[in-house]
Design a protein around this nucleic acid. Sequence first.
DNA 1: ATTATATAGTTGTCTATACCAGTTAGTGTA
DNA 2: TACACTAACTGGTATAGACAACTATATAAT
Lengths: 242, 242
Amino acid sequence: MIDKNSPIPIYHQLEEHLKSKIESGAIKADEAIPSEREYAERYQISRMTVRQALNNLVSDGYLYRQKGKGTFVNKKKVEQRLHGLTSFTEDMIERGMKPSSKLLSFEIIAAGAETAHRLNIKENTPVYEIKRVRLADAAPMALETTYLPANLIKGLTEEIINQSLYRYIEEKLSFTIHEATQQIEAAIAKDIEIKHLQIEKGAPILLIHRSSFLKDGTPFEYVKSAYRADRYKFIHSMQRGK
Amino acid sequence: MIDKNSPIPIYHQLEEHLKSKIESGAIKADEAIPSEREYAERYQISRMTVRQALNNLVSDGYLYRQKGKGTFVNKKKVEQRLHGLTSFTEDMIERGMKPSSKLLSFEIIAAGAETAHRLNIKENTPVYEIKRVRLADAAPMALETTYLPANLIKGLTEEIINQSLYRYIEEKLSFTIHEATQQIEAAIAKDIEIKHLQIEKGAPILLIHRSSFLKDGTPFEYVKSAYRADRYKFIHSMQRGK
DNA sequence: ATTATATAGTTGTCTATACCAGTTAGTGTA
DNA sequence: TACACTAACTGGTATAGACAACTATATAAT
């Protein structure tokens, strides 16, 4: 259950174990979980380590505490979806189109200057580079290159990026995705874009550069996308803050 | 500074102390605070107690950590809030450029099909049409056409649109501006844009269509803008709601 | 039976220490 | 000069123990 020799921190292992128990319904809402001392005894770990796991689950809303009584499971969280931080897949589905992808390359390379700057890492640090043609209703929509710091986003496989990268980051790696910034510009298609997007020479494209950040401000993703301007409009709504 | 005999927990005292330092601006954004070990030494408390204080400030967004480097002050929440509903003037000032305008035309016309649809009014209803070249540092940046329902936005003058249209709407007309939606696309410049933006034939432009709404949902503004792609990138940040 | 009191449980706070892992600057060597 | 190494920092993880504050229950005295 708990592997003390694992590179994964003990508190994190306990966290995941408890989270899955809660989400599977093995412990119901408002039921007490075992006490901190009991966990410490059961897994032969320090009580402070148990507390670190429980603290995280409390701040994530899975548990609540009552001094002198115990620690209890919270009511199920309301499903909070990515507001605005949409992936290509979600974006296309919202637009009523069927998304698909064609993987061009998937490898670990040394970060270039721009990528290093965007990911706040040093040049030549290893990063995943994923090149894909994004299709909507089987027609090319965008040419997309994703960079992820290999030291942060570990254990990435083709399988994962074909499923949901964000879910992997949040659920398996237990990071919290917080915000993203995008820069959008217009340009004339270059040869590689002409080829993969099947457009004419001189055709305009919409270039989107996205940096995504974790809750602690760490950038974890940098995506460069070239969209066919004749098929894609970037839609965006904003509200005035209080 | 820290009272060990106070009934208020030490970590809470340190937390409040640091929070006020941050909010008063005594420590600026992205500046490092003293290390955990230094706080422990300075106040003769345990490093774990310092960490408890810092942990809380990190999860409240006041601080962020970097392993091996230190703990730093986060940007104020106002600064990191997505800047919404910016006018061209505010946008350029934020980018460190000096905005100005050249009025091309200012008249009341009958709404066309597209404009009527966007403003949710009937065709041929009177609307203001304002055509301007927007300049940044005295160089053409965008060609902008604004439509406003004449029956809603009353008493508009050249004077007002050269000042702040939004302020006029909110302060003089007592409307509350609430949100805007934008559609952004790439295109090749047409003749009129080539002329006013002083760009080459075949040059790409960034087309932004913005509809703005009052609090009650009434659309009050429709703006079509064509930006020089070589000088303008649309920047946009989004957060995940909680 | 009612009321104190003890006590055993819980979480909350705090200490002192240890080692790991990443960053940085300086130092020595090829 | 260029590069590798080292030393001294940083935060991250984990330990073992202590006492405080609070809650519930069992027990003894009234």
